[in-house]
Amino acid sequence: MLLLLMGFAFSSCSSDDDPLTEEPPQANNPAIVLDCDYFSSGNIHLENVPGAPIDYIISCDPKIKGDILIDAGVVIAFEKNAGLQFIDDANYKIEMKGTSQNPIILTGTEKIKGHWRGLLLSTDNASNVMNHVTVEYAGQIRPGGWNYKGAVIGAWGGVMDFNNVSIRDCQEIGLHWEARAGNLTLANSTFTRNDVPIVTNANHINSIDESSTYSGNVNDYIRLEHTGADKDITFHNIDIPFFSNGLNPNNSAKRTFTFKPGVTILMDAGSEMYFQGAFRYQHETIMVGTPNDRITIKGKEDVAGYWKGLSILSDSPLNEVRFLDISNAGETIGDPNGAIKLGKSVFLKLHDVNFINCFEYGVSLNYGHGYNFSLDYSNLSLDNTPKLFSDHNGVEVTNP
């Protein structure tokens, strides 16, 4: 028995002293501080710093002078007013490839909205990618007079493939993809707790789809600036509304404008959606909801005549508006003042439309001898809208 007890005690002591069973010490190595001189030396590769909770601290706002590669799991903290500018004319490559288990984190040294400037992107390298990257606590109006503002800014031809990116807790704008920017690819990403999640223009609407989430911001809408459009456009049914200052496609080619079921669009004061048919280019308007997923287009404020309405001047046989709620539209001064205005030569299928709190008329018609005018309509209802049809001069029409 004595021998057994001694053996047990010996084995217990050996186990306690065995380094293989001890908890490894928690490393807490300091971050590497990078100043502007570091970024002027050509290509850059930022790797994980062993044992460092934060791998790098960036103290300035450098212009990158080479390709940049950031490894999965790298954490970079930016000091106040610091950032990164990818604006050199050589179109260097940006590669930030995190993973779901080891995302790349770009954060502030203080957890305050707008603490650091963010990323300014204008390189058009087709290989640019940000995958599993989090950008947080950034967003400022950048100096220089270009009105660049936001946490991640695409400008002057910038190209980026965003996939599984999270932009959160940012001041001004989460993602500001300007009219002058290049191709935007966006998927499986999250924009939340920003002042505004995204600001862009009509040509980049196609990239904003149901694969990403955009809610939980101070202003829960996608802000659309600049009315011009020079490509086919699809409005997707995302989890927040679009907020538009109008849409006026150019006439360099035929365009198709598709509004998916369930889409909601807020219109700015005095704005208009204008689908014209100039010369041989007959733009196509396909605005087809369903009984359970109606399309909604309304003023940002619930005021009759807050925005001008839809103008359709195309005779494309594909023009169709169905299961639409249109609110707060109409001209308050001058004619025609319908929420939907139809041109001289037009083709439109118009069914199951509710005109809600519009200024005077639901539909204004401009038709007469020699015009190719075709209007197929049914189930048009008025809700706090006085009259259904007028001619182009604002005179009521009872049976068009």
Results as ranks from 00 to 15, higher is better:
1 M>Q: 07
2 L>A: 07
3 L>G: 07
3 L>D: 13
7 G>P: 00
13 C>W: 10
16 D>W: 10
20 L>Y: 14
27 A>W: 01
30 P>D: 08
34 L>F: 06
34 L>N: 04
36 C>G: 08
37 D>E: 13
40 S>D: 10
51 G>D: 02
52 A>M: 02
55 D>Q: 06
56 Y>A: 11
65 K>V: 12
72 A>N: 06
77 A>L: 07
82 A>T: 09
83 G>V: 04
86 F>K: 07
88 D>M: 09
89 D>C: 03
91 N>A: 11
93 K>V: 12
94 I>L: 14
98 G>F: 06
105 I>Q: 11
107 T>V: 12
107 T>E: 05
108 G>W: 02
115 H>T: 04
118 G>K: 05
119 L>C: 03
123 T>Y: 04
125 N>W: 02
126 A>C: 00
126 A>R: 03
127 S>P: 00
135 V>A: 03
135 V>N: 03
141 I>H: 08
145 G>E: 07
150 G>C: 08
151 A>W: 05
153 I>C: 11
156 W>P: 00
161 D>S: 13
168 R>M: 04
169 D>E: 05
169 D>F: 00
171 Q>W: 00
174 G>Y: 02
180 R>L: 13
180 R>H: 10
180 R>P: 04
182 G>Q: 10
182 G>K: 09
186 L>C: 11
190 T>I: 15
197 P>E: 01
201 N>M: 05
202 A>N: 15
204 H>P: 02
208 I>L: 14
218 V>Y: 02
219 N>K: 07
225 E>N: 12
231 K>S: 10
232 D>T: 06
236 H>K: 05
236 H>D: 02
238 I>Q: 05
241 P>Y: 08
243 F>W: 14
246 G>W: 01
255 R>D: 04
255 R>T: 10
258 T>N: 10
260 K>T: 12
260 K>S: 15
276 Q>G: 14
278 A>S: 10
285 T>M: 14
285 T>V: 13
286 I>Q: 09
297 I>R: 09
300 K>D: 15
300 K>L: 15
301 E>Q: 13
302 D>R: 12
302 D>V: 07
304 A>I: 05
309 G>W: 01
311 S>H: 08
313 L>D: 07
321 V>D: 03
326 I>F: 01
328 N>M: 07
329 A>K: 06
331 E>I: 08
341 K>D: 07
347 F>L: 09
351 H>R: 15
352 D>F: 13
354 N>I: 13
360 E>N: 15
361 Y>D: 03
362 G>S: 10
373 F>A: 12
374 S>V: 14
377 Y>K: 15
384 N>E: 12
385 T>F: 04
389 F>K: 13
389 F>I: 11
389 F>Y: 14
390 S>F: 00
399 N>V: 08
